[in-house]
Nucleic acid binder design. Structure first.
Lengths: 273, 273
DNA sequence: TCCGCGATAATGTATGTACATAATCTTACG
DNA sequence: CGTAAGATTATGTACATACATTATCGCGGA
């Protein structure tokens, strides 16, 4: 890689150079580490300044030209690094005004939601599922899907998911047959509906709601727990090009299932800090 | 903007040109829409092809040079668009091999987790909190924080959060005093611990676990519900430069609190598709 | 047939240059 | 004194060029 080849040069010498000629006694934090592409090194260096608190929230950064001479790279390279950090939410940029450390990252915590089959398999258990009910109907006949016009043909599915034979999740799903007509032909005898859909149907957005509920007597019987047991309820509606594709409601036993993960846009991890 | 100025030229004429000379009867989907920067138009065009199913998962895309002449822009511009789509997870790129439509986006569903005070305020309710207990101790004395060495000084907090006077969340929190010594001086009489920390302490990663549990008698009394009521339990450990900063355990009443949100890296939204 | 090695094709990075865009600052005029 | 027009400054985009990196392909020899 080019960056590596010049590492000794740009990373150490040049940055050390300007810093010492200008004034600097001890700003060695601005040193690049020579690992990976130059723009990545700059990302790490800048993100490091922020995470270490040297550059506080709201504070203005040196402009691209200054950073460029500070690190001894071109403005374009600095621009790429800084623009990516801005895109990831670390920085806010305003033309003419400058670049500022972003305030308030609290909304960036996130939980990934995975397919139950994957989770069970990854934990080393045997995954199975059973379709309990399957019927075609039109929206509004007994079941109503709010975001879909009445009368739209729908496939309604109900199934149970097992880990090593123990029921862990109940799934009630509606599929828009206008959006996914092929699903009518699919028997789901080897692949679960969620997996089938995810592999086949592109989606452009999805919204979720996660709640805790007490199991009703019926659900408790299906899941093999006492009535009233705490369950995690996940409702997810998947859209494709602003059209609802599927609406699903999962119910999982509290002490057999949990959601977990680290923050998704975890640039720090990506940046090895 | 430069792109807008040349829109009529590149967006319509040039792309129309090569398509008709080569063979094409009806590939008008490759037309740019002239809105925004060129690389954004290309992102939209390519993402559109994928979301509309014209380019299926796993399929190989034309290479940068081909796309470049197809859209009548330089390779750098195509590169920027495609590289961003790859970074967002729509595409997978391999040198020499080419660019492919990503398979399996199922792991990209996500739930944002917000500060309870923000949620309550946004819903138009009055937010209050009360500190129930506060003590300093060393790790391992009665309480143990697994990821922290024994003997590390810790601040332990317990508090309740209210919406319009109704308790909605119980919080039990440990703060690493080695990492955040200032917290020892903070009385928390106007600002809640979570907010105080989030405003003051930078963090580089956080991991979460969300579960459903039945309220114990003690918790039920604090939260004003019947014993056994389903509650959402969120455990979050926040790290800063690989050092644990705070470990917090939230317990929220199931029918007064839920997590919801759309997929975070929702490029389709961002792309207006 | 198999293995290795060089040619090749694709993406990745860095820099230069030029101009666009949008705030902010300055200045001059009413 | 206020305001509007113009200068300035910082970021944003686009293109050209050059070279690095890395799979893959294909050919030749053991």
């Amino acid at each position: 890689m080019q960056g590596v080849a010049r590492q000794g040069l740009t990373g150490q010498d040049r940055v050390g150079g300007p810093a010492s000629t200008s004034a600097g006694p001890a700003r060695d934090d601005l040193t690049l580490d020579g690992r990976g592409a130059l723009f990545d090194q700059i990302k790490r260096a800048v993100a490091g300044q922020i995470l270490r608190g040297r550059w506080q929230a709201g504070q203005r950064l040196p402009n691209e030209a200054e950073l460029s001479s500070l690190y001894g790279v071109s403005r374009q390279t600095v621009h790429k690094a800084i623009a990516l950090l801005a895109r990831e939410g670390f920085l806010v940029r305003r033309r003419r005004a400058g670049t500022f450390v972003a305030t308030g990252r609290r909304d960036r915590f996130a939980l990934p939601i995975e397919d139950i089959g994957d989770v069970v398999a990854r934990e080393g258990h045997v995954y199975e599922f059973r379709i309990r009910e399957r019927k075609s109907l039109n929206n509004g006949q007994g079941i109503r899907w709010p975001d879909l016009p009445d009368g739209t043909p729908i496939l309604a599915l109900e199934c149970l998911h097992f880990s090593d034979g123990t029921p862990i999740q109940h799934e009630r799903r509606l599929v828009n047959l206008d959006a996914v007509p092929e699903v009518a032909e699919e028997p789901f005898d080897s692949v679960a509906p969620s997996r089938w859909l995810v592999d086949r149907v592109p989606w452009s957005s999805a919204d979720h709601t996660v709640r805790a509920v007490n199991a009703t007597a019926e659900m408790a019987a299906l899941l093999g727990v006492e009535a009233g047991a705490a369950c995690l309820s996940i409702r997810r509606q998947t859209m494709h090009l602003s059209r609802p594709v599927t609406l699903v409601h999962f119910l999982s036993v509290g002490d057999r299932f949990s959601l977990s993960g680290s923050s998704i846009t975890d640039s720090a991890t990506e940046l090895n800090l």
